[in-house]
Structures are given as structure tokens and as C-alpha cells.
């Protein structure tokens, strides 16, 4: 019988953790880009765009990420689009992230005082000029702590992609457990890896929050 050293277990988990990190990064960047578009629709002057983006956000916030993954992974092949586990994971996490970020950022845009809109309006700026030069730069400052905080949710969310067979750190843990029969050790290490990834981010988010509260 094969035997596994502690180092074997850890090194295989760390190799798989690369995919967790990569998936998180892609989901966060793509989700951020899509989220920005959804945000612009959400705070636009068009009632139709506001409504549609509202539905989009509600749909992704109101259903479990796991269901979104299943619907993409099992649903798209039904209409003739083959998706790999990797593509389904990226797609689902991007959509999920974009909806949450759009909603977080909407709160930040609305936190910019009305007087800022009035002052820039009275100077003759158009809506887009107001957004670009006055509102978004201020909203950006406010948004950094909650955005960094949310990135932790994205990292933990990637664990769900193990269920559709994407081999990231959770899936690797399951496979190694099946071979070593040491679930406590293996899953303990998996949890530790998540913690090492997430803790610095939430710590940083809290510090930013404190700092931006006192600064301009």
C-alpha cells in the first residue's frame, strides 16, 4: 500500500490552491468589470436600465451560488453549449461577483452627498462628467473597504466549484482524503489555506475602513 507523508499531502494541496487563487482573481477582475457596467446601469437616468440591473442583482443575490453553478454547468449543455468545469466556474463566479459588487458600489455612489451633484450640475457638467470627475472618485474611496471585504467571500465561494468537479483546493482535499483516510488532517490543512488567503484581506479591509474614516 502507498503511504503519504505530511509533505505529500501539503504540497498537493498547495498546488491545487493555485487554482483557487487563480479562479478568485479571474472572478474578481471579471466580476469587477461587469459589476461596473451593472452599477452604471443601476444609477443611470434611464428607468428601464435601472429596473433591468435591479432584476439582475436580485436574481444573483436571491439564489445560492451553488444553484447558479449547477444551472450553468448542467443547463448550458441542454441548449447545445458545452461548458467545461473551469468555464462554468469562471462564468458563475463572475456573474455572482458582479451582482454583489454592483450593489455594494451603488451604496457608495449614493453615499456621495447630494450637494456634490448640485454643485457640479450648477457648473454645467453633464451627467457623465459629474460621474467621471466628481462622484465616482469619491465613491471609489468609500468603496475600497467593503470591496476588499467582499473579495473574501469570492475566495470562499470558489470552494463550491469543487462540486461540479473543478479541482481547486477543496476538491483536492476530498481526493486526498479518499486516498489517505485522514479527513481531519487534510480538511484542517484546507481550512488553514483558506484562512491564510482570507485573513490578510479582511484584516486589511478593517484597517482601510478605520483609516478612510478619519481621512478626507
Amino acid at each position: 500500500m502507498l503511504s503519504f507523508t505530511f509533505w505529500d499531502i501539503l504540497s498537493n494541496l498547495l498546488l491545487a490552491a493555485r487554482w483557487t487563487v487563480l479562479l478568485s482573481l479571474i472572478a474578481f477582475v471579471c466580476g469587477g468589470v461587469v459589476g461596473l457596467l451593472v452599477l452604471l446601469a443601476r444609477v443611470s437616468r434611464s428607468a428601464v436600465l435601472r429596473k433591468l440591473s435591479g432584476y439582475y442583482i436580485e436574481a444573483f443575490q436571491g439564489t445560492p451560488l451553488l444553484m447558479q453553478l449547477f444551472l450553468i454547468f448542467f443547463g448550458l449543455p441542454l441548449v447545445g453549449i458545452e461548458v467545461t468545469a473551469w468555464l462554468a466556474a469562471v462564468l458563475a463566479l463572475t456573474l455572482f461577483t458582479s451582482a454583489f459588487l454592483a450593489e455594494i458600489w451603488r451604496g457608495c455612489v449614493e453615499a456621495v452627498p447630494r450637494g456634490q451633484w448640485e454643485a457640479s450640475e450648477s457648473l454645467g457638467m453633464t451627467y457623465f462628467e459629474q460621474m467621471r470627475h466628481v462622484v465616482l472618485p469619491q465613491a471609489l474611496r468609500i468603496s475600497i473597504p467593503p470591496t476588499v471585504g467582499f473579495s473574501v467571500q469570492v475566495i470562499k465561494g470558489t470552494a463550491l466549484t469543487s462540486i461540479i468537479g473543478f479541482v481547486e483546493v477543496t476538491r483536492a482535499g476530498t481526493m486526498i482524503t479518499n486516498a489517505t483516510f485522514q479527513p481531519f488532517l487534510v480538511y484542517g490543512l484546507v481550512a488553514l489555506i483558506y484562512f491564510v488567503l482570507c485573513f490578510p484581506l479582511s484584516f486589511y479591509a478593517k484597517r482601510l475602513e478605520r483609516r478612510l474614516h478619519v481621512a478626507r
Partner: peptide, 23 residues
């Protein structure tokens, strides 16, 4: 305005320059 409504992310001169440049 009563509440000044200066743009807090810009310096005094940038506050004054913004609209002439943008508008």
C-alpha cells in the same frame, strides 16, 4: 451654496479649474 459643496477629493485650485477644463 450654503454648505459650500466643494469637491473634497480635489485641492482648492483643482476645485476651481475643474469646470473650465471639463465644461
Amino acid at each position: 451654496f450654503q454648505q459650500f459643496n466643494l469637491f473634497p477629493h480635489l485641492s482648492a485650485i483643482e476645485n476651481v479649474m475643474l469646470a473650465p477644463v471639463v465644461v
